[in-house]
Amino acid sequence: MDLDALRSRRRGEWDRLDELSRSRDLSGADVDELVVRYRAASADLSDIKTSAGRTQLGDSLSVTIARARHRLTGAGENVARQIPRFFALQLPAALYRLRWTTLVIALATIGIAALSALWISADPALIATLGSKAQLQQYAENDFTDYYEPGAAFAGQVWTNNAWIAAQCVMFGVTGIFPVYVIMSNAINLGVAGAVMLAFDRGDVLILSLLPHGLLELTSIFVAAAAGLHVFWAWVVPGRRTRGESLASAGRALATTVIGLILSLALSGLVEGFVTGQSWPPAVKITIGALALAIFLVYMLVVGRWATRRGETGDLTEYEAGTPTLYAG
């Protein structure tokens, strides 16, 4: 192949391709021309590489073609500029979608825990199966409250444990079984602990110890279970989309939700690590816990509703998820 002859014959077309790819505003006709010239230049580059291998002309044309491809598929957005949009729109919208499922899970958990606690505490034979009287008394009068030791190490341990529970709900949510298992297991464990405390007339200690951090902590776990079940439902009932498209969309929204859960569990861990174990008046500790929950609920329900009305779904944008769509502008 005579590269000089090819350069002379195609220079005008390549220059026009470069001009179009650098233009900020393209009309519909310009986009059509850009696509045509992009394909022609790609064919020329293929011929050059096939006949002459790597050459200076080929490298120069590759740069022009890359710029044209970038123009057709969309310019990348600044990641730093995406952060405000993520927290103002995407994350609250993703959480808002889970509101009713979260409520159902919360009511079911509280109901199962309460019934388990009342049923077991009312039957001495069932209480006896949990351990000796001395062991249970030690747990009710000392171990339960001694668990909440103020400090950063404890807060970090709590955060890690709760994040792991939430992660399991997320990772295995597509099964539809694991989130239910986690919620049932936590509800029954809470009921058993409540039964022991009630059996030794320490029900008030149970409530006052759980409320400061438990309000937000349990809500976060409920949201994690709800997110996992939504992925399962998207797989089972994809609607008008293909099963793969429905599952991919739900999975991307779930990835958004995970970030919110990491932050909310971090906040509940701070409350549990630095507030629950303090010798402050119960009203002060519960008020702090209620305030932490209120912040989360306002973000989820109020900000989430506003974001949803603006068309957000919690899914990633085309830039973040990747898209083959060509557009002009």
Results as ranks from 00 to 15, higher is better:
D143I: 09
D143K: 09
F144L: 09
F144E: 13
D146N: 15
D146S: 15
D146E: 13
Y147R: 14
E149N: 14
E149K: 15
P150Y: 05
G151E: 09
A152W: 14
A153S: 15
A153R: 15
A155M: 08
Q157W: 08
V158G: 03
T160C: 04
N161V: 05
N162I: 09
W164L: 12
W164M: 13
A167G: 05
C169A: 04
M171K: 04
M171Y: 05
F172Y: 06
F172V: 03
F172P: 01
G176Q: 07
I177A: 04
F178A: 06
P179L: 00
Y181N: 00
Y181I: 08
Y181M: 05
Y181T: 14
V182M: 03
I183C: 00
N186M: 02
N186G: 06
N186D: 06
I188F: 02
I188N: 01
I188K: 03
N189Q: 07
L190F: 01
G191M: 00
G191A: 02
G191V: 00
G194L: 00
G194A: 10
G194W: 00
A195P: 08
M197T: 05
F200N: 12
D201A: 13
D201W: 02
D201S: 14
R202M: 13
G203S: 08
G203P: 07
V205A: 11
V205S: 09
L206F: 13
L206V: 11
I207N: 10
I207Q: 07
L208D: 12
L208M: 12
S209Q: 15
S209V: 07
L210E: 05
L211S: 10
P212D: 10
H213C: 06
L216I: 12
L216E: 07
E217R: 08
F222M: 15
V223L: 08
V223N: 04
V223C: 03
V223R: 06
A224S: 13
G228I: 05
L229N: 04
H230Q: 15
V231S: 01
V231L: 10
V231T: 08
V231F: 01
V231G: 01
W233N: 14
V236I: 14
G239Q: 08
G239N: 09
G239V: 11
R240A: 15
T242W: 04
T242K: 11
T242N: 10
T242D: 08
R243T: 14
G244R: 15
G244M: 09
E245F: 10
E245A: 15
S246A: 15
A248P: 04
